[in-house]
Structures are given as structure tokens and as C-alpha cells.
Nucleic acid binder design. Structure first.
Lengths: 228, 228
DNA sequence: TCGATGCTTCGGTTACGATCGAACTATGAA
DNA sequence: TTCATAGTTCGATCGTAACCGAAGCATCGA
């Protein structure tokens, strides 16, 4: 009866606590099985299965069969961006489950946002890349500069692989804890992979938190300095 | 039981069709009475009242008493941004109420996004401002350049009034029909006001659509040219 | 003061959807 | 084969929230 897209459907998909818990769990970027998701949501396997099929019908998640396991993951980057912005909005209005839990400072410092780095470190990363003119552009049309391409190649990032896909290489994602943008897109994903591969940072098991090692912090500050 | 903000609460607030209808109606930027909102949502006044108090408790909307009327409006810009991005997401996944209604082309061309201009014209506006170096910055840190301040002053926009408030002057808002950013913030609001005041554009009553006059199109193209 | 309009609150009905038990299918291991 | 694990489907229950009728306030005009 009304014109335009129907926001109520996605709203109600995210609106159920069990589904919201599953989605937040998937924000870790890891693909999880139905049993694991049922566990984090605190429901039985049957109900979880029902929820998961609804989420998949709404193309919020996708599944991949592997042996007798079914791995579920967020459907694409868009879902991650939407969830992160929803979290920012929720945090802003005081919709928190419990006031700043124990792991909260760690999450604010550095965490995984679906497949890229978020939190203080994520924002600092983007700030530095812009200040150093590795990335340029306004609004959401960000792109690597010539110097940027050289720098990334020097870091061992295969740019041709990144640009081959239809996914944008650079894009911004609103950080819920910092209320500012950090770097998403395939480059954001590649850089997080780099940090983890080189052992500069480690993922906290069972959490979105990312812990930088002493050496990792040093390398990070050296490679991505801030003007101030 | 889980860390972080609770997205389920806002999700369920938006997830109810009646509430979603009201919120979309409020995206027109106009403040509406409870009776009007009940009408657009297709429910009685009593239920509307209940929904409105829930939305207000969630600080998605705010109300202003005026005589025996109660005017409801979106609480702030953040709500508008969130709703617009939700619409983009919904449209992207085929969550539409009816396939491209009659007013749809008009909406895609130019419409009000809470308090600023969206649609093709909105995106072109931001593109032009960036290309002409009226606005500069990366990510979400957009700002007027020196030349930009002069241009806006020449248009009769009182910049000191805009910068006085705590609201950001320039910010981006993801356009659901164009899938790209347009200009929001107090400057975006001021520019839309300018177009309407000068009679370059007229609002379609009872809709978000904005219709540019012949002269308005000419002036718009002259003031905000595109490089291509 | 009286009536009309705008909106809220209360109470009761109803409907939808989340939940789980139980049964069924599929994959892998012994 | 047989058993165990992973997951879906079905059916029934149950709670919650949307909904409306009716009554109750509040504000305005006469």
C-alpha cells in the first residue's frame, strides 16, 4: 500500500533476540555451524534451524555444506555494514545488554567487523591511509592512489586479485564504538589478513576482539603513522 | 548475556509494519499528528498512540505539543540516516511492497530524505560539490573549503548559523535508489531549503517526491555542474 | 458552560510466531 | 550393516504483542 522498499521485513528479521544473537556471532567473520549458533543464541537446534532458514530466505546469511556440517556466514559485506551501523545506533541510544562488560575495552580497541578491522585501530588505520595519501576520494568513492598501490604491493598484497572481484576495494564502514569510519572492502579484508598472518595481532577465541602483540603495535604505528 | 549493543530492540521497533509505515511517512521531514500517522499506517488512533509511545521510548521519534495537536517527527538526523540505509538494503534484496509503483520514477529522481535532498538530484549535488572542490575530505570527514564557504555565502546561506549547532555541517547519507551517497547534514538541509524557497522545486503533497521546475532544473545545472 | 476535536489509557480478544518434543533424513565412522 | 552425529520438518503449546471498543483527559471555540 505504500511506495518504496519494505524496511519492516528486515527489521523483524533482526528484531528477534535469537536471530540478533546469531547475526552478532557471525559478525566475527567466522562461518559457524547450526549447533554453534544455537548455543550462542541459547536455543535448541530445532528453533535455530527455523531461524536460520528465515535469515537465509531474507538473504542475510548464506550456508555452505561441508561433510555433515553446514557452515553459516553473513551473506555479504552489505550485511556486515548494516549490522555495524545498527550497533552504533543502538549503542548511541543506550540499547545495551549490560553496561560495558569486561571484554568491552578490548572490543573498543580492536575487533573484527565481519572481515576487516574495527575499533580504535581500525579508525586509526583509515585516518593514516588518508593522511598519507595512500587512499583518496570523497564520500564513499574511495580509491587507492598511485603511491598507495606501490605501498600495498610492497606489503605483499596482491592488488590484481582484489580488483578482479566485483566487490569494491575500498569502502567506509561506520564504527559503532568510535562513531567514525574505518576501512572496509577487499583492501580492509586483506590488511586484517596481513596483520594476522604476520603475527602482529591475534584473535581472541570466541569473541570479536583482536589483540595486538607488542611487536604488532610497533609495526602498525610505523607503517600507519598519524600526523598528530 | 552477550557483549555489545542490542540491535534486536531497534530491529523489533522497526520490524512492525505499522511502525515502519509511520517512520517512512516521517521520512518526509514533516512533523505529523497522531491522526495523520494512524491514517497512513491504516490503523486506529488507539493503536497508533501505543506505537508512537513505543517509538518515543526508543528515542526514534520526538513529539511537540502545539495546542491540542501533537506533532511527531524523527528524533534526529541519525534516525533518518539509519532508515535510509535500511531502505537501500531492503531494496537491494527485493524487499519491496509492490514492484515500482507509479510515483516511483519521481521518487528516484528527487525526494526528501528527512531534511535534505535525495535521489538522482541529491547524488548529483554531492558529486558536483566534490568535483568543484566546494567540499573536501575523505570518508565521513567532509568539510567546506574556503572557496566553498564563499560560494555558499554568495547563495545567501548563513554559515555561522550552521556551524553554531553541534550537528555536523556536511555528512554523507547512502541513497537507497542510487546506491551512492548524497549530502546530508545542516548544509544539505540548508540547500534543500534554498531550492524550495526560491521556487526551483516544489514538494509533492503527501509524498516524499520533489518536483523541480523548468527554471529550477536550469539553475540547478548552472550552479552545480558535473565534469562529465 | 457546553460541545467538539485530538489523543491517551484500560480491558479484552485475537493472531502470529517463537519454542520445543518427536520423528525423519543425511553424512560419516566403526 | 550398525551406530552416532548433524540437521530438518512436523505438530502442538504457549506468550506476547498488535488490535480495537469504550471510557477518560485535555484543549479549543462558542
Amino acid at each position: 500500500m505504500k511506495e518504496g522498499p519494505d524496511i519492516a521485513q528486515i527489521g523483524s528479521l533482526i528484531g528477534d533476540p535469537a536471530r540478533a544473537n546469531m547475526l552478532t556471532a557471525l559478525m566475527s567473520g567466522k562461518a559457524l555451524t547450526a549447533t554453534e549458533l544455537a548455543g550462542t543464541a541459547g536455543i535448541t537446534l530445532q528453533t535455530a534451524s527455523s531461524h536460520l532458514s528465515k535469515l537465509e530466505a531474507g538473504s542475510l546469511i548464506s550456508q555452505r555444506k561441508q561433510g555433515r556440517h553446514r557452515y553459516f556466514a553473513l551473506a555479504d559485506d552489505e550485511v556486515g555494514l548494516l549490522l555495524e551501523s545498527l550497533m552504533g545506533f543502538a549503542a548511541d541510544r543506550g540499547f545495551t545488554r549490560h553496561r560495558t562488560g569486561p571484554k568491552d575495552p578490548a572490543l573498543r580497541k580492536a575487533r573484527v567487523c565481519y572481515n576487516h578491522l574495527a575499533g580504535d585501530y581500525g579508525v586509526r588505520l583509515l585516518d593514516s591511509l588518508v593522511a598519507e595519501e595512500v587512499i583518496a576520494g570523497s564520500g564513499d568513492t574511495l580509491a587507492l592512489t598511485g603511491a598507495g598501490r606501490e605501498k600495498m604491493a610492497a606489503l605483499g598484497i596482491d592488488l590484481s586479485a582484489l580488483t578482479k572481484s566485483r566487490r569494491p576495494v575500498c569502502r567506509t564502514c561506520l564504527d559503532w564504538s568510535e562513531r567514525r569510519s574505518h576501512l572496509a572492502g577487499s583492501l580492509g579484508q586483506a590488511l586484517l589478513g596481513l596483520f594476522l598472518d604476520r603475527g602482529w595481532a591475534v584473535r581472541e577465541p570466541g569473541s570479536r576482539a583482536v589483540r595486538f602483540t607488542g611487536n604488532g603495535e610497533k609495526e602498525f604505528a610505523r607503517l600507519f603513522p598519524l600526523p598528530g
